[in-house]
Nucleic acid binder design. Structure first.
Length: 258
DNA sequence: ATGGCACCCGGAGGGTGA
């Protein structure tokens, strides 16, 4: 079972790339972030035609998450239980093939001095609590993928000395990610690859792609209990070289059948 | 060096991303 996650930076702008990648890779499940579209305008038909069921949590202009699946989708929840009606659409969870699968788009944080940076930290803390609550209540192994907007380690950034203490590589962000993993999850990519400079995002501007100046900020975290089933994981950097790319690329994990 | 680029909305150019 192949599960992938991709911040597409607008599903409408990325529909050609998305369908090209889906047709080539045929993942069982694809988690999307930054769909940037209302539910009414989500291009469902292009995905249904390819055999994917779709559940979405969208909003106008920004944010927006979705889950695409070739298997039946059940028990969908959007956001955190305590969210008000105006909450940004950054989290969707569903039960698929005996797993609790989630797509998450963690707030960027903008700048460490900006109030939204504290909201990012709070959001990551809430996410940890939500994962524990879901594990207890749904009782299925959890796979959460998404754009976490945090590089975990120095080997996950092109210039750690430049980013240290800044947004995306601040100790408080790393602490929140580590606390989340310590709750019983593993960074699937790092089970199979120790190499530095394997990134999931490159800036649109300047020579970022040519010089491999990127960040690894997109992850698939899987329940520790899934370790024996986890056979391979990777980052597919190729779509970053296609026409009209997202600035993020898909990350993926393969799980053996239970 | 606050630029670079791409997306959004709205119908110009500012807000946001990372």
């Amino acid at each position: 079972m192949k599960i992938a996650s991709w911040n597409v930076n607008s599903i409408r702008a990325r529909l050609a790339s998305l369908t090209r990648w889906l047709d080539a890779q045929r993942p069982d499940v694809l988690l999307l972030q930054e769909t940037k579209v209302t539910d009414d305008d989500f291009p469902r038909d292009d995905l249904l035609r390819r055999g994917y069921s779709v559940v979405i949590a969208g909003q106008k202009s920004s944010n927006g998450v979705a889950i695409l699946s070739q298997h039946p989708i059940r028990d969908v929840t959007v956001g955190f239980p305590e969210d008000g009606p105006g909450a940004e659409k950054r989290l969707i969870a569903a039960s698929i093939a005996g797993l609790r699968i989630m797509s998450a788009y963690i707030p960027n944080g903008r700048d460490v001095a900006h109030p939204v940076f504290q909201q990012k930290l709070a959001w990551l803390s809430r996410l940890r609590g939500f994962l524990l609550e879901q594990r207890a209540s749904v009782r299925l192994p959890i796979v959460i993928g998404g754009d976490f907007n945090v590089a975990r380690e120095a080997r996950d950034l092109w210039a750690p000395e430049l980013f240290e203490g800044q947004v995306h590589f601040h100790p408080e962000e790393r602490n929140r990610i580590n606390a989340l993993l310590n709750a019983g999850f593993m960074d699937s990519f790092r089970q199979f690859c120790d190499a530095p400079a394997r990134y999931s995002w490159w800036d649109y501007r300047g020579p970022s792609v040519a010089k491999n100046r990127g960040l690894r900020i997109d992850y698939l975290f899987v329940d520790d209990s899934l370790a024996p089933r986890c056979t391979l994981a990777g980052i597919d950097a190729e779509p970053r070289l296609w026409e009209k790319p997202s600035d993020h690329v898909p990350v993926w994990v393969e799980l053996d059948s239970a």
